[in-house]
Amino acid sequence: MDLKRWTHIVAVADRRSFIRAAEQVHLSQPALTRSIQAAEAELGLQLFDRGTNEVVTTPAGEFVVARARQLVFNSRCLERDVELYRSRSLGDTAFGVGPFPAATFLSQLMTGMRREFPGINLRVEISNWQLLLKRLVEEDIEFFVADTRDLPPDPNLYIRALHRQPGGFYVRADHPLAARKSVSLQQLWSHGVLSVRLPAGVRAALSRLLGLASPADLSLALECDDIELLKKVALASDSVLAAPHAAVEEEVAAGKLHPLEASDLPAQSSEMGVVTLRGRTPSPMAELIISRLPARG
């Protein structure tokens, strides 16, 4: 039996009149009567006693109407929720971000989402791309944003490039290197470098410039995916912080961190991208978040 017929049954039970129920469901009285008769025939039950003054549900009708009422209610709720979902007013999502996105645009993005869509729930995992890829494959998150240079080639992954984030080296304002116009890579490394996990290509380039035998010989004073922790260590020690410019804008503007010019190092930037599973349709909220990420210029 289709949903419309269940709606007709509930309307007759509520209105206790075929005339009033027909007006409610926008049918003629004969058409509604035929619908109820067809329902009774299909169920093999008499649902209503047709009196002279009003229509009354039979015991079987009370049993059926109670369940039909719940069915109609759930259908209306579903229609409402689908419309809310379509308009992005409903639809929770979970996604992941690497350490650089977490330290640059994530805060502003999430603040905007919470202000615009207070009724939705978001879950954000901040980690390195290896763990985020695992979460994506397990379908625990819908997408992740991270440096994609070391991602293994996989036909099941779809990667959309984002805006590159240039980076550099920073020290506290009264650091011994802060007064120098330029410094060498060897000088940077002699003070100990703080960084997130470096992509393989970056490690290889740095190891060559430092004259190391292999990338495996390149050591970091502190390797951590938490940019905020790295900044705190740089501000309280002689260590050198490697980070995207956007992640340290406030500290540089406040005079707490000082950018260094590395004379023998070409300009560096991250290669950010949105990673999704190919063939999986993202939720409207996921699509909206992705559309607000800094696109590649």
Rank of each mutant, 00 (worst) to 15 (best):
K4D: 07
R5F: 01
R5K: 07
W6I: 02
W6K: 07
T7Q: 10
A11S: 09
A13M: 11
S17L: 02
S17R: 01
V25W: 06
Q29F: 01
S35W: 04
A38P: 07
A41L: 15
G44H: 02
L45S: 04
Q46A: 09
T52K: 14
T52C: 03
P59Y: 03
P59T: 03
P59C: 04
F63R: 00
V65C: 05
A66W: 01
R67T: 08
A68W: 03
L71H: 04
L71S: 00
R76S: 07
C77Y: 10
R80N: 05
R80P: 00
D81Q: 06
V82S: 05
R88G: 02
R88Q: 06
T93W: 07
A94E: 12
F95P: 10
V97E: 02
F100C: 08
P101A: 06
M110A: 00
M110P: 00
T111W: 00
M113T: 00
R114I: 09
E116V: 01
F117T: 04
G119I: 02
N121F: 14
E125T: 07
E125P: 01
W129T: 12
L132K: 10
L132H: 11
R135H: 14
V137P: 03
E139L: 14
E139R: 15
D140Y: 07
F144Q: 02
V145T: 03
A146Y: 04
T148P: 01
T148R: 08
L151M: 08
D154S: 15
N156D: 15
A161I: 05
L162I: 03
G168K: 13
Y170C: 09
V171K: 08
H175G: 02
A178K: 09
S182W: 07
S184V: 02
S184M: 02
S184L: 12
L185C: 06
Q186F: 14
Q187C: 03
L188N: 07
S190E: 13
S190F: 06
H191L: 11
L194K: 02
L194C: 06
R197W: 08
G201A: 12
V202W: 09
R203C: 14
A205I: 14
S207Y: 03
S207C: 04
R208K: 06
L209K: 12
L209D: 02
L209R: 15
L209C: 04
L210D: 07
L212R: 10
L212D: 04
S214N: 11
P215K: 05
S219T: 11
L220H: 05
E223W: 04
D226V: 04
D226N: 05
E228D: 10
L229V: 05
K232V: 09
V233Y: 15
A236F: 06
S237M: 11
D238I: 10
S239V: 09
S239A: 09
P244S: 14
V248A: 06
V252L: 02
A253Y: 00
A254L: 10
A254F: 03
H258F: 09
P259L: 01
A262Y: 02
D264T: 06
L265S: 06
E271L: 12
G273A: 12
V275P: 01
V275L: 10
T276E: 11
T281C: 13
P284K: 12
E287Q: 13
I289V: 15
I289L: 14
S291H: 13
R292P: 11
P294K: 08
A295G: 15
